[in-house]
Design a binder for these strands. Structure first.
Length: 515
RNA sequence: GGGGAUAUCGUCUAGAGGUUAGGACGAGGGAUUUUCAGUCCUUAAACCGGGGUUCGAUUCCCCGUAUCCCUACCA
């Protein structure tokens, strides 16, 4: 039987990185085994805070971003749809009826108030909490129904609860943890069908996994402790239990389940920051899985597909290491074709106001041409110079800002940079010679710029480095950046000469330090 | 309170009944360059505790401890 796995997110907002990691595992497994990867929307909680329509879009775009497109899902449909639980209500109701008919589930008329009171009492007495099974007794149930009927003047609402066996044990066989045994008597009579007619996870998931032919269930370790109820629903329904495995949780530095207070958890944040899909996949996969004794951690997607197996999953929680992710992302940025990075960086530059938006489609040709030459070509020259320094794409604006911003000494110059390098006694002659030399340069090339600069240093009898640093500060306002000659080359003759000239004039009487 | 799971450098992890317990991130040092980044070399850094089993356990078993997860008409 071919492998069929599913990613089953709830649209409670932007997807959590932990859920996406599971989706990646699912996808890798499907690709590795030549099976199918499906996605199903678990939107059975209709409360406003737990049903976020935009979340659906975030889920969809996150999968697209990662390039792990489901073979069957709500976007494209498929043979076992619909792939949205709220559109499958009759299916769950039907199965609930079966359970009711066979006595493996029962209606419960208890009010929320009563449930809360019971729980409060249990907590007060340090008793295990859980439903006291009052309605499991037909007589008491009818009593409760009548009582509410009279009080409310209409047929009272009810839920359907799982009639968990009162004795024996339920064993869940987890692929990586082995048999996990639960005492049935300790399990709660889980609500399967809510009073609003929607199923809970414990009914919807088994029904769908069965109907959709799911062969392997991968779900977070936080589900393991309710495994008995889950397993029992399959059994009660007469459905074969798929292979099940609980990858470890992703946690924060304090070892608690990764949440907002640890930093970003919403996947869309990572996209916005400019993490590359292959970096995210590589990093996330390694958080809870390893290729064994292969001493490496950088894997391409095809390599991951070839190596992935459920057996490689670890069983203890993994701390999300933002630093390592950054390192890995920087690695993949460096590895990328410059064209790709340029394309990915442009939106950040536009957003930061460093470059203008592209002209309209119906703008005059001259305007389009001017944009292409003046803006795009410049950005194309500049961005690759900083490609090696970016850890995230969002950092590009910080890195290349000085190329685009109007530098007008001393405005836009870093105080420390000026203090350190523009106090050089030979500054004035150096600037004058550079202006002359760069101005007279035939072809504006990196080699030509270097030759001129070296010559200036020799004429001044100053070390090469001592020319380079003040020149960098004079033309960029800072001490760090790409190689000086690449920088000058990218800036272009006009900007370089203007900036040098301005500094020359304004430092004629020593350094103005308005700082 | 109850239940479940887990335990190797700070972090992600590899590992085998006998190893110098390996790699990576991060940290320290050095080299290189024109600053930064990168690259290369290098240093420090770990088997939770106690019992067993065994010639020998960090590895297998038990107990303890610690941590996490669940304990909803949420997933």
């Amino acid at each position: 039987m071919s492998v069929r796995v599913r990613y089953a997110p709830s649209p409670t907002g932007s997807p959590h990185v932990g859920n996406l990691r599971t989706a990646i595992y699912d996808w890798l497994l499907a690709r590795k085994e030549g099976g199918q990867f499906l996605a199903r929307l678990e939107d059975t909680d209709r409360s406003p805070e737990r049903y976020v329509p935009e979340g659906i879009y975030d889920i969809e775009s996150s999968l697209r971003f990662l390039g792990i497109l489901p073979d069957e899902w709500w976007v494209t449909g498929g043979p076992v749809g619909p792939y949205v639980q709220s559109e499958r209500l009759p299916l769950y109701q039907e199965q609930a009826e079966r359970l009711l008919a066979s006595g493996q589930a029962y209606r419960c008329y208890c009010t929320r108030e009563r449930l809360e009171a019971v729980r409060a009492m249990q907590q007060q007495n340090k008793q295990p909490t859980g439903y006291d099974r009052r309605c499991r007794d037909p007589k008491l149930r009818e009593e409760m129904r009548l009582e509410r009927l009279e009080r409310e003047g209409a047929e009272p609402s009810s839920v359907v609860r799982l009639a968990m066996p009162r004795e024996g044990v339920t064993v869940l066989h987890d692929l990586i943890r082995g048999d996990v045994t639960f005492e049935n008597a300790l399990q709660d009579d889980q609500v399967l069908l809510k009073s609003d007619g929607y199923p809970t996870y414990f009914l919807a998931c088994p029904v769908d996994d069965h109907l959709m032919g799911i062969t392997h269930i991968l779900r977070g370790d936080d589900w393991l402790s309710s495994g008995a109820k889950f397993t029992h629903v399959f059994k009660a329904l007469g459905f074969a239990m798929p292979t099940i495995v609980h990858p470890p949780l992703i946690v924060g530095a304090d070892k608690k389940k990764l949440s907002k207070r640890h930093g970003a958890t919403q996947f869309t944040w990572f996209i916005e920051q400019g993490y590359l899909p292959e970096a995210l996949i590589n990093f996330l996969v390694l958080l809870g899985w390893s290729a064994g004794d292969e001493n490496r951690e950088l894997f391409t997607i095809p390599e991951l597909i070839a190596r992935f197996s459920l057996e490689g999953l670890s069983e203890h929680p993994a701390v999300f290491d933002y630093d390592k992710l950054k390192w890995m992302n920087g690695h993949y940025i460096r590895q990328s074709e410059p064209g790709r990075i340029i394309g990915m960086c442009l939106p950040y530059l536009r957003k930061a106001g460093l470059i203008a938006d592209a002209p309209d489609a119906n703008a005059p040709d001259a305007e389009k041409e001017a944009y292409r030459v003046g803006t795009l070509d410049y950005a194309r020259r500049v961005i690759p110079l900083e490609q090696g320094r970016m850890k995230t794409l969002a950092e590009v604006t910080e890195l290349v800002g000085f190329f685009f911003e109007e530098l007008d000494y001393p405005h836009g110059y870093e105080e420390k940079a000026v203090a350190k390098w523009l106090r050089a006694p030979y500054l004035q002659p150096m600037l004058r010679k550079e202006i002359e030399g760069y101005g007279a340069l035939g072809e504006w090339t990196v080699a030509g710029l270097e030759a001129v600069t070296r010559a200036v240093g020799e004429e001044l009898d100053v070390k090469f480095a001592d020319v380079i640093h003040p020149t960098r500060v004079a033309t960029t306002g800072r001490t760090v950046g790409p190689g000086l000659f690449e920088t000058l080359w990218a800036l272009g003759r006009e900007r370089v000469l203007t900036r040098l000239q301005t500094v020359l004039e304004r430092t004629a009487n020593g350094i103005e330090t308005p700082f």
